[in-house]
């Protein structure tokens, strides 16, 4: 049965809170602008502890996770999620690495999922913004994707477990990322993983113009050129260390 407009608004307020529900309604309205000329994005920045240990408790070993360092080692476009090649090339150019999860041989799908990581700084794909990580003990993770048919399985946990191991070996103790405040599932999942909130930012784009309003410096930014963007500095050096990944599991069970 189709949900009425009133019902949809009521659900949206219940799920997102009235403030984000209003932003979400505006974002949906802007999606109707012809030519996708306008868009509104509202981000939550978070930091996730990186610590030794196992997230899967030894499960999911048939899911092989391997690093990918360049376009030539990515699976063919038909097997990967729809991302413009220019976006992927730009990620590699800024030093990003990708972890590829291969599904067990019994599965119909070849690429089970991927996760991207970058040190130092990350140029945002979706809006004009740069995330700067001054501490060598921090990294940025982005575009965590799991094949739709394998969601609810062990792919995400295996990807994060491998990323966690790799990052910890490199001395990283916090992995920062941005999530959409309109994605309540992702917001709730991150909260259960014990992430720390680092701030929020709202971007409104119309044509070449971009307006940004954030809860952290630079707070406000207006631009209309590709080379003009706000830089957010996320310094995790003052954050406490998480002793083990099992602590995350205990948080999950609470």
């Amino acid at each position: 049965m189709p949900i009425s407009t009133t019902g949809r608004i009521r659900n949206s307020i219940a799920e997102l809170g009235w403030r984000d529900a209003v932003w979400h309604a505006l974002a949906r309205l802007l999606q109707r602008v012809p030519g996708k000329r306008c868009a509104l994005h509202r981000y939550q920045f978070v930091a996730q502890g990186v610590a030794p240990g196992s997230l899967c408790g030894g499960r999911g070993k048939s899911i092989v996770v391997a690093p990918c360092l360049g376009m030539e080692t990515l699976p063919p476009a038909s097997q990967r999620p729809p991302r413009p090649p220019a976006t992927l090339t730009a990620r590699f150019r800024q030093g990003a690495r990708c972890l590829l999860a291969s599904a067990p041989p019994t599965s119909q799908t070849l690429l089970a999922g991927w996760l991207w990581m970058v040190h130092g700084a990350c140029q945002e794909d979706e809006v004009r913004a740069r995330y700067v990580l001054p501490s060598l003990q921090s990294s940025w993770d982005l575009d965590v994707w799991v094949h739709p048919e394998l969601r609810g399985g062990l792919v995400f946990a295996r990807l994060w477990e491998e990323a966690n191991t790799l990052l910890h070996e490199q001395g990283v103790r916090w992995s920062c990322s941005r999530i959409s405040r309109f994605n309540r599932t992702s917001m709730a999942a991150h909260a259960r993983l014990g992430t720390l909130d680092l701030g929020t930012a709202t971007f409104l784009r119309c044509g070449h113009w971009q307006w940004m309003l954030a809860s952290l410096p630079p707070y406000l930014h207006l631009s209309r050129r590709a080379d003009s963007f706000p830089s957010f500095i996320f310094d995790t050096s003052g954050l406490p260390h998480i002793p083990s990944l099992e602590l995350t599991c205990r948080i999950l069970k609470q």
């Binding site: 997230l55 408790g57 609810g152 792919v155 946990a157 599932t185 709730a188 999942a189 999950l252």
Partner: peptide, 14 residues
């Protein structure tokens, strides 16, 4: 799954 926000792929393991 997909309807209960508390149940994500990590919670499935628990």
């Amino acid at each position: 799954l997909g309807s209960l926000p508390e149940l994500d792929s990590m919670a499935v393991i628990s």
